[in-house]
Design a protein around this nucleic acid. Structure first.
Lengths: 337, 337
DNA sequence: TTGTATGCGTTATCAT
DNA sequence: ATGATAACGCATACAA
């Protein structure tokens, strides 16, 4: 491994001069800088992040906490899309990312300990149980934290505008003449609460009253439970004309159930999804859905965390709402009211 | 931050004694060990990976190179599933993972340089262009490397048995009476080559001859190109009775095209996918496909790499073939021959 | 403008 | 069994 010491020997300058030159310090003469840089590059020098960290207390490393209830982990297009964008932006800003877990080898550790162990400059938390004391410990620590899709006290949060998303969907459905709208929602999280709020708010504004039996609970990213909910809805004496699903993927479960009943989308029953994942746009009929801007979510998370890291003293936590976009497909039938 | 020094002050033992005690060295007395460990835990001590690395030259960090041609990155269920398993196993073995990229901040670097910068003990390479000189540089370096789904000279490779997978599928299709089997394949990679080999080998054994126009090129994970290929196949004078797709996801494109032609699966046309992702099992009719054992792929990759790291001197590179499993769905019709 | 010396937190070598 | 000391690679305060 080539170190600055090696370069120093090779070019005659002292170690510190070499260090300064490579860090573009203004103290060093232009010509010395050039020589040193040239030799460094010739020798294939590359700094050692660990050694640098030891001095600077900066790892240029961001921890990512990414655990979901369904244990689908990275196999969840919404989250992997966010992660992907997050990673790209972090790299652009000069940071690597490290997954944070609660045990490494056979040594159990808390999330916080793992972050300290790896000297993470900051952490992004997504998709975890925010009631877990270990998560709370991490959020309350001195490590800068950004949460995604969850507001935790006054830490910075990047939030997909779920309220507006559902409102837009309901309004859109309403315009197509539907009044009997059912809503299948996921587990009881803050995201779900916002979506429900958006649903009721929109309905109220439009003056339509939704009976309780049109509201069904399922799980996110789980076609099975959404399938069951769909069945219950279809078998009602007064079934809805349109069903809203927790997410695009879950709709697959509903789709199967609808077909089992000999019905077709959208002629017999209209549907909408949520997320706007790739799948929704390749299904036929194309699914009307609300596309969450995963690109922006990941990017903003990375940017805000880096801001928080850089201006640790003056940074003020904030909430960043990311708007989504209605994707109009062919899954809603225009009906006369 | 609590350091060994702090513990030393607190308990009276010297720094080196503390260090040895915490590392369970046999040199240290049982009682001293206990006291030291107790105090360390009380003070909330946690080792600093960077400092340790500087001495030991071991980062307990594995680099992961994970870039695909379609730029879908982590939004690719097959790869994200492998990655997920890889990550879990690495953590179990005491390693964190770091994504390797080719620039960090505005500093361009090669993959190799990035690995050195982060002191990765080893690297897992998946899903990249193996002709990229920067990838070759990395593989040929002194850093232990494990590749996934690609054999590179004599480095360790974890391979999904694509040859057998396609053979199994063809045999299965044959048993259902099909002789006119079309094969849509992805980009020209070693995986594709093996699949094609498996296809031809199986056909030969079964004594069926496949005309060249039944072989179509598309792209992996890309419904559009598979859709186009499907159209061409369906519009042949002598269309196939069964179409094999590059992967389950691409089949969606074929599905749409089939529907556009007013045909249904499997009554008018039989199909099979590849991968066995979640989607394939929630579609109706359920897709007959070949499930790649992503769990095992990721796990074996991590294990073999850690072996290579631990026994750097004596480790002998090897190829590990991971078997998959035929998932029988309802997408093939039994036909009389 | 350049060089010397120190220390970050840890482990390893060598004394005691 | 325990401790003093050096060293890992780097950045920086301070001296020259």
């Amino acid at each position: 491994m080539v170190t600055i010491k090696d370069i120093s020997k090779r070019c005659g300058y002292s170690v510190s001069t070499v260090s300064k030159a490579l860090n573009n310090s203004s103290e060093i003469g232009v010509e010395a800088k050039e020589i040193i840089k040239k030799i460094a590059s010739e020798m294939g020098y590359f700094p050692n992040a660990a050694a640098r960290l030891l001095k600077t207390n900066r790892s240029n490393n961001i921890g990512v906490l990414f655990i979901d209830e369904m244990q689908s982990g990275l196999r969840h297009e919404y989250f992997s899309a966010v992660l992907n964008s997050l990673k790209d932006e972090a790299e652009r800003l000069g940071y690597d990312i490290t997954f944070i877990s609660h045990n490494i080898g056979n040594v159990p550790m808390t999330y916080y300990e793992h972050c300290k162990y790896r000297n993470c400059d900051g952490v992004i938390i997504a998709c975890v149980d925010f009631n877990d004391p270990r998560v709370i410990e991490l959020i309350n620590s001195e490590i800068p934290v950004v949460t995604i899709d969850h507001i935790f006290n006054d830490s910075t949060a990047i939030l997909s505008d779920n309220l507006k998303g559902v409102e837009d969907l309901v309004n859109h459905i309403y315009e197509f003449g539907h009044r009997k709208i059912a809503f299948i929602h996921g587990e009881d999280t803050s995201v779900t609460q916002r979506r429900l709020a958006g649903f009721y708010k929109a309905c109220e504004k439009l003056g339509i009253i939704i009976p309780d039996y049109y509201i069904k609970k399922a799980r996110y990213h789980d076609p099975k439970t959404s399938g069951l909910a769909t069945r219950e809805l279809l078998e009602l004496k007064d079934p809805p004309t349109c069903i809203m699903y927790p997410d695009d993927f879950s709709f697959i479960g509903g789709m199967n159930e609808i077909e089992k009943h000999g019905l077709t989308v959208p002629d017999d029953i209209s549907v909408v999804g949520y997320d706007g994942i790739y799948l929704s746009q390749v299904l036929r009929p194309r699914l009307t859905t609300f596309k969450q801007d995963t690109e922006a979510l990941g990017k903003e998370a990375a940017r805000n965390l880096v801001n928080a890291i850089d201006d640790k003293k003056t940074y003020v936590p904030k909430q960043v709402w990311i708007e989504g976009e209605l994707l109009v497909g062919d899954s809603i039938k225009k009906i006369e009211f």
